[in-house]
Amino acid sequence: MNLAGTINTRTLPLLVTSVLFALLFGFGSVSYDNFFSVQVFLNLLIDNAFVAVVAIGMTFVILTGGIDLSVGSIVALTTMVTAALVEQQHWSIWVVVPLVLAIGSLFGLLMGSLIHYFRMQPFIVTLGGMFLARGLCYVISIDSIAITDPTYAAISEYRISFGEEAFLSVSAIISLLTLALAIFLAQYTRFGRTVYAIGGNERSALLMGLPVGRTKILVYTLSGFCSALGGVLVTFYMLSGYGLHALGLEMDAIAAAVIGGTLLTGGVGYVAGSLVGVMILGVIQSLIAFDGSLSSWWTRIAIGVLLCAFCLMQRLLEQGGSNLGAIFSYWKKPAEGSAPAR
């Protein structure tokens, strides 16, 4: 296979992200004892399983050129509903999980319908959804509710071992399965191709006779479903429901998608890239935790800097294509299309 041929504007961001991840992990391995182990790598998956699931849903939304700000609050609402039903009503986990997944999907469906039928901006609709879901958490309870149900505790503690000293949690397995399904959905189905077509050019997609409206609504439904699934994973991870869970998760999910090579204008990106993006956020956290002397707020700054770098790279790729010379001539070129469209 011709390696140079496969590197183009579409795959370059993903490639850069993967190399960056390897570099960061390598840096950690050289700098700190015990960093270079399979378990540290697997812990990245375990600790960020819910972020990965939410980022997968977000990637689909961004691929259509939209945005979903409500994901963090839907995660919180899911934990809250789960905790209330399991602890106070003593419902079975097998009833509660499908129910919360349905609630999350319904939430997404409603927002998607508002966006499609009333031509409202995704930003403002999902902003309203964010307020609504967080507010509903507090309607249930303003305090944290601990989950003491034995089934939840058992799932939370269950470890699937690989060889001697490596293991994964149930949540990590679920997130990997979700990823596999999402890749299938994005690359090998009509739905996936329609998502890319809408992101590329919505008008053309419509003229081609693609089901634009239905797909857009479905994408937000999918994001709602992924958020609810992420919420279920949070209940396994934290064993509690709380209105302040997953505060700011939407920004992490967007950052993961962007760092993973998804263009925010839509149409370009890979679902798998978002997992790499999440892993990069995770490895930064691990590095700061291993270092010990750096404060945790450096994580936010590091994520911001990475986000900025990747956004700038995206802009340059859009402007210059794959030709590196064009990237450097960008600053000499007179301004084109100066005021940006949102």
Partner: peptide
Amino acid sequence: LILMVAGRGV
């Protein structure tokens, strides 16, 4: 968004 994420860290 970049400043929103990094700003509180700063």
